[in-house]
Design a protein around this nucleic acid. Structure first.
Lengths: 339, 339
DNA sequence: CCGTCTTGCTAAAACGATTTATCAATTTGG
DNA sequence: CCAAATTGATAAATCGTTTTAGCAAGACGG
């Protein structure tokens, strides 16, 4: 007793039963028949000794670890990572699971290594997360273990969790239309190759498809379509500055992400264009930025928390197929007449 | 062989030796004396069967798991979390350790629970991370396991990793002084109570101490000191807008974090004040924002990646005492004459 | 009164590694 | 030539659970 933790044998001794009895009672097996009194004695002994089971022994015996692996390409580079991780953390806490986080940098060898070391540890399931939604190529033969791809797709894994980009695209159009500013809209950030699926970013393709469908349903067309390859503030600034200087000013901007919108705000500030009086802006992602801008940026949010949670649920339930998570509109002050 | 993974016994059988031999050779024990030939046979057999040791069995026997617990109060709320996690991930990968991430919300019961479940799993060490630097109260008696407090302090744990806020404060003053704009500086965001240590945020106290020391060493004094409780863009905007309207305009702003500086940029834009021609700005944190602003914001960076890495190193080395990680200046365009 | 059921519990064999004690064959030393 | 040391390896115990097979005692049925 002086040395080491209290073990199940200690509990058994104190309760005056065998350790098999302790094991069965504490793990709450359904079809056993111990007396009420034995139940009570065991529970009391365990409590008195503040017994905690040894996870390694249990994992060795049962081949399950009550832990999930969260393997991602980049925790670092994107500000979205913690949404996904936070959601996964919440989901796994609720399911009584631990989360082992690994990062691969997207390098195939490291991905294989991560999966191997997950398997070494009798992991109960793997969440393979991509920080930038993309088609994921899993290493060699997928192991015989529940798996889900989070924020990406993969032909080797039958279960995906993705944002409902198409719905989100429609939603953005709806916001503009209902505010009555859909007449003169500039679409900022399209990319020909992307749209045709050449770069296999399925989500972005769907986002655009939703936007175009929404416009078409309302019989609307864009006044401008500005192509931008790199969705960063500086590019958004340049594009919108040029647009505002052109004389043919739009009454609304539909930016394909918040960073472009941020650049647009800067261009407006320098050109003396007021948001939303002169120009309404809506975009996508609900980046942390969006709340800081003046006026607050109305944006269609990426539901990363929810996605992380669902990934855990699905990997534990071994669900198959694609799960689309709705992208809620976060209405702030950047659309005239709304918010 | 058809059922389950290949085990050490399989390797032993194929190499024609005992499993004790396999264990000792594969784990590279130093003082054993097996023939070269046996070494080769064992390694070859292991490779041919692509043997991987069962982590649970090993943990059960050795009481070590080759895994660290990263227990934090909030992964969510702050954008700094992934810097710390990323660093810890990098450090643990290098040390051949896994990282189990847990989140407690700062709730004492959940903190205790997290520590308990870490101990259940024969964790090799605990990194207790605070997302907002603060004094951490660890649950009850600290367990007999290596521990380090990351981005916080604790009287119950002898090892801390903190940013060198005092050096950072000095550095900010140096940048302004060398640009020759230190004469008319407004300090944005002080807080009386904080500075006197009433809210036990040691780092912020030190940041201010460094700033004041830097000014004093140069025989300088602030032209304005604006007190702000909540360091958010909206508050920075209000404060700086008022300052610019006052007629007694400073030539430089020393903002206590990037979000305040962001608010300051907005106030400048509305007041027609140009950065850095009319007003130089420097701040702290190197938030993602800082790179997006026009001109880029010069800021003293919080070295979260490095801190996360060091935390791992220290917990494995069982180092004691306080480690101060330098805060590097990231020079962009917001100070006149520099960058 | 004897066989069969049910009740309440336990003995002992896994799980797959590590580690201690030991052993048989050589080599070495005196 | 014999005792002691060295070399190269192994048998078996151990870590702390879970789980299968089964045991003893009383209840029940006919």
């Amino acid at each position: 007793m002086a040395k080491g933790r209290t073990t199940m044998a200690d509990v058994a001794r104190r309760a005056g039963v065998s350790s098999a009895t302790v094991s069965m009672i504490l793990s709450g097996r359904p079809d056993t028949r111990f007396s009420q009194e034995t139940h009570a004695r065991v529970h009391q002994a365990a409590a008195e000794l503040s017994y905690r089971p040894n996870a390694a022994a249990r994992a060795l015996r049962t081949d399950r670890s009550h832990a999930l692996a969260f393997i991602s390409d980049h925790v670092a580079t994107t500000r979205f990572a913690n949404g996904l991780i936070r959601g996964a953390l919440k989901g796994s806490a609720r399911a009584g699971q631990m989360l082992m986080v690994m990062e691969t940098g997207g390098v195939p060898e490291r991905e294989a290594l991560a999966i191997d070391s997950a398997l070494d540890r009798q992991i109960d399931g793997i969440i393979f997360a991509s920080m930038r939604a993309r088609e994921i190529t899993l290493p060699k033969t997928p192991p015989a273990i529940p798996m889900v791809v989070l924020n990406g797709t993969s032909s080797q894994c039958p279960s995906w969790v993705l944002p409902d980009e198409e719905g989100g695209g429609r939603e953005a159009v709806r916001l503009l239309a209902e505010a009555g500013v859909a007449g003169e809209v500039a679409l900022i950030g399209i990319n020909e190759e992307e749209e045709r699926g050449l770069f296999r970013s399925l989500p972005i393709q769907r986002r655009l498809a939703g936007i175009r469908a929404g416009m078409a349903e309302r019989g609307l067309a864009f006044a401008h379509e500005v192509s931008i390859w790199e969705w960063e503030p500086a590019r958004g600034f340049e594009a919108v500055a040029a647009l505002l200087a052109s004389g043919d000013r739009p009454s609304a901007l539909l930016c394909l992400n918040d960073r472009l919108a941020f650049g647009a705000y800067q261009a407006c500030a320098e050109a003396g264009v007021r948001v939303p009086e002169d120009l309404s802006i809506v975009s996508f992602d609900n980046d942390e930025l969006a709340a800081y801008l003046r006026p607050g940026l109305t944006t269609i949010a990426l539901p990363h928390d929810r996605m992380g949670e669902l990934a855990v649920d699905r990997v534990l339930a071994q669900s198959q197929g694609e799960e689309l998570v709705p992208m809620p509109a976060v209405v702030r002050g950047s659309i005239r007449g709304a918010g």
